[in-house]
Design a protein around this nucleic acid. Structure first.
Lengths: 106, 106
DNA sequence: GTTATAAGTCAAATATAATTAACTTATAGA
DNA sequence: TCTATAAGTTAATTATATTTGACTTATAAC
């Protein structure tokens, strides 16, 4: 298939894909990779997560493939379950290079 | 109604709601408030944005109300148009207090 | 090799988000 | 006040995301 490894048949899930650095702006694909990396790192299978959250496996796969035609609530459920959350960046002209936003927006 | 102000009839849109600090973990409602704040700060009306992105006004309103039963792609379009983007936080036990994530995840 | 589990895909049915159009309410200017 | 625009809601329809179940492929233990 691709990038699996580690344990199986005894210890829950498979391998851990590399975790990308997402402290800056990122693409949906990169987010998806981070989710998969976190899940596999926690030794959880797709079915583990989908059953825990009552989300179907095909939907979970869509999320982990970076498909943005998914409901926001489903993405958020998965992220929360895996211990991931967003912070917000304001990439406007005036702010200094990738600064984390606080008050001074527009 | 509520919290509008500033210009109208000549200069495009209305008022600017206060911009919340979202450098840390935030709720969908807070994100929604940030989007509204950014849009109004840019003097754009709901219709300005909805027409520019080919997203209906009711959907935009849902997004700005913090309703998470919306498609991820629509939220992302709005955020990109307004110059907002996400970064990712890993709120797990081991990382030190709200640190921005880089490589060391699980 | 065989076997068991995880990953991933697929089509049909269901659930629901999005659109449309019309409408009400609120704001700010004249 | 009156007027024009923005905000916000609503119901009916359309579009599509989600689910279900079965299925194939890939991995890793034996």
């Amino acid at each position: 298939m691709g990038n699996l490894a580690k344990t199986n048949r005894t210890g829950k899930a498979v391998k851990a894909t590399a975790m990308p650095n997402l402290s800056e702006r990122f693409t949906p694909t990169q987010l998806a990779e981070a989710i998969t990396a976190k899940r596999t790192g926690m030794k959880l299978s797709l079915v583990d997560v989908s059953e825990a959250l009552s989300i179907s496996k095909p939907t979970l796969v869509k999320i982990e493939k970076g498909n943005t035609n998914v409901k926001l609530t489903n993405l958020l459920k998965v992220m929360e379950y895996l211990g991931l959350s967003f912070s917000l960046l304001c990439d406007d002209a005036t702010s200094k290079e990738g600064t984390e936003v606080s008050d001074d927006w527009y």
